[in-house]
Design a protein around this nucleic acid. Structure first.
Length: 573
RNA sequence: AGGGAAGUAGCUCAAUUGGCAGAGCAGGUGCCUUUGGAGCACAAGGUUAAAGGUUCGAGUCCUUUCUUCCCUGCCA
């Protein structure tokens, strides 16, 4: 539901292609995940791009699993990827394909290249192949097997297919140029032998095409016009083109863009899988993970993710997007749609001394000030309440407007109260506040027009439900956990990335909440009901905190104090 | 000269293809507020990596230089 049409260097290229009729004004893209892990927010950028462009031009976008390496790929990932794509809101109808669908055709294409003398079976060992490849600034040398007769190559390739070689004993290579400055063109491997059962083709094949040999031809078979991939494939484009030109089939255009990097997290599938396998997180859908499944469980909405992808745009500059940006979009989305509710995470008992002991009032509360149609609900009020411990200070600094001894504040939707006494335990800990309320302020405003500077959220102690809250912070403490070459990224995992608070106290209207329901706990944060919830006890994941000017101001003044001190100590004398 | 690519505000991107360098986010200052949320207003932020050239006019075209990133898997 993205309103404005996105314009970027890729749409410029497509516009030009449409103008000169290169693809008969057709636009057909594809999203080609390898099923070797879960989709993450970086994939979301590619998904939004590919599906978005197809939508924008009235074209199509295929889903194609790039399943050419059975050693790493699993059905579990295929299922998870489909679920995540659906959840993001994209459709491909019946156009879900697998590179493995084309193994027969690919094999034929390879045979064709052998027949025109452009491919050969090499029996060098993997190690030897590496040595023969040369170095970045030095040409490689031809394999001794490079100039075998066509008939021999044909027979050997058939022998590879039939299982006459073991893994590593032979590969099929394209005969291009061992002295090319582009290493991808130094006789790249087209087929290798893999003794792993394939999730889809079972044990039909013992040889599998390499990415480069499979991808362009798969694009071609599907009639893809614009094959959009990430920057690291720029060097592969000449090879992409070479295969298509030499096999002489329909030739899509490969376009490369900069993948997403997000601060305070990692995007490498190899590293994400380590977080899961080594138990740093609870699974691929742990709410701290940058995976789509993790973000979903964290309470993110598909809309927010799509808005985020639109916002960051697409270019060829490698950069790092601040995590703040993602948070901005989920706040913006949830602000519009999340139901407001009151919950106390860190309780402080408040007794309203002049409130009748057994009285209960059901007060009207607005469900969403941003959306009148969300209506109102009733919230019970009684003599004994919980407020947030942080909302009281015995000796408040300037600009702390909340409750303090002798000060009057408003309880949201309820009454003005004034703190008359502070009760402490033997250790000096504040355990209870005694307050008095003004009955004339019912609903939250004073008939005499007097004002208070703060409004507090609260729950009635006898009516409150207990729940568990999982408070999340950044998974990593540093902007780029991969930057330090001497340290493993796991050393930068934030020890406070998950804090469990149990119990928290929530208003009784939440009794009917179900897994996936999103709420704003007023003045605190957005939360979503986790699937770990039971009928007896709800579990909430904190999606993102509300912006907090007070905390920001505190941080700012702390910083100022620090720099002032530094300045002072730097002065001589 | 190994090949490829990128440099515009703190960050992510624009700039009608040669015509007054803009937006969102972040940061700043106010206003408003029954969420210190949301909202509103204002200000600030730039030698367009650098130098030279073409031109009435250059972020855009040409030349040179600098910086950063990617590439030596039988991974994708």
């Amino acid at each position: 539901m993205t309103a404005a049409k996105n314009k970027n260097f890729i749409t410029d290229i497509i516009d030009a292609d449409n103008q000169n009729g290169r693809f008969d004004r057709r636009v057909h893209t594809r999203f080609p995940p390898e099923p070797n892990g879960y989709l993450h927010i970086g994939h979301a950028k590619s998904i939004c791009l590919n599906f978005g462009i197809a939508e924008q031009y009235g074209g199509l976008c295929n889903l194609r699993f790039d399943d050419t390496n059975p050693a790493k790929e699993e059905q579990e990932y295929i299922d998870a990827i489909i679920e995540d794509l659906r959840w993001l809101g994209y459709q491909w109808h019946d156009r879900v394909y697998f590179a493995s669908d084309y193994f027969d055709e690919l094999y034929q294409m390879a045979v064709e290249l052998i027949q025109i003398g452009k491919a050969y079976v090499d029996e060098l060992s993997p190690d030897e192949i590496r040595q023969y490849r040369g170095a970045l600034s030095e040409p490689g040398t031809d394999s001794p097997y490079r100039n075998r007769p066509i008939a021999e190559n044909l027979a050997l390739f058939e022998k590879m297919r039939a299982g006459g070689f073991k893994e590593g004993e032979a590969v099929l290579r394209a005969k291009i140029d061992m002295s090319s400055g582009n290493i991808n063109l130094r006789d790249p491997v087209m087929y290798r032998i893999l003794d792993a059962p394939h999730p889809r083709t079972g044990d039909k094949w013992r040889i599998y095409p390499m990415y480069d040999f499979a991808h362009g031809q798969s694009d071609s078979i599907e009639g893809i016009t614009h094959s959009i991939c990430t920057l690291e494939y720029e060097d592969h484009r000449p090879l992409y083109d070479w295969y298509l030109d030499n096999i002489e089939i329909f030739h899509p255009r490969q376009i490369e863009f900069a993948r997403l990097n997000l601060s305070h997290t990692i995007m490498s599938k190899r590293k994400l899988i380590r977080l899961v396998q080594e138990g740093y997180v609870r699974g691929w859908d742990d709410p701290r993970m940058p995976t789509i499944a993790g973000l979903r469980r964290r309470g993110y909405t598909p809309e927010a993710i799509r808005e985020f992808c639109d916002d960051i745009g697409v270019g060829k500059v490698k950069g790092v997007v601040a995590l703040h940006k993602l948070e901005f979009h989920i706040r913006q989305d949830l602000n519009r749609r999340a139901q407001r509710v009151m919950a106390v995470v860190n309780p402080l008992k408040v007794v309203i001394e002049n409130y009748p002991d057994d009285q209960v009032e059901h007060l009207d509360a607005i469900n969403n000030p941003e959306d009148e149609s969300a209506g109102t609900r009733k919230v019970p009020f009684s003599k004994v309440l919980y407020i947030e411990r942080e909302d009281f200070m015995e000796d408040p600094p300037r600009k702390f407007f909340r409750l303090a001894p002798g000060r009057e504040v408003r309880l949201r939707y309820a009454y003005f109260i004034t703190c008359v006494a502070v009760i402490k335990d033997d250790a000096g800990q504040i355990v209870e506040l005694r307050c008095r309320y003004d009955p004339a302020t019912r609903g939250g405003s004073a008939p005499d027009g007097r004002r208070v500077k703060a409004t507090l959220h609260w729950v009635s102690a006898q009516h409150a439900l207990e729940a568990e809250a999982r408070l999340y912070e950044n998974l990593f403490t540093v902007e780029n956990p991969e930057a330090d070459r001497d340290k493993d990224f796991t050393e930068f995992i934030n020890p406070k990335s998950l804090t469990v608070v149990d119990p928290i106290y929530i208003e009784p209207s939440l009794r009917s909440a179900r897994a996936g329901d999103r709420f704003q706990f007023e003045r605190l944060a957005y939360f979503v009901v986790d699937e770990d919830s039971t009928p007896d006890k709800l579990v909430f994941n904190r999606t993102v905190t509300l912006r907090d000017q007070w905390r920001k101001a505190q941080k700012r003044s702390a910083k100022r104090r620090k720099s002032k001190r530094r300045k002072k100590s730097a002065e001589p004398g």
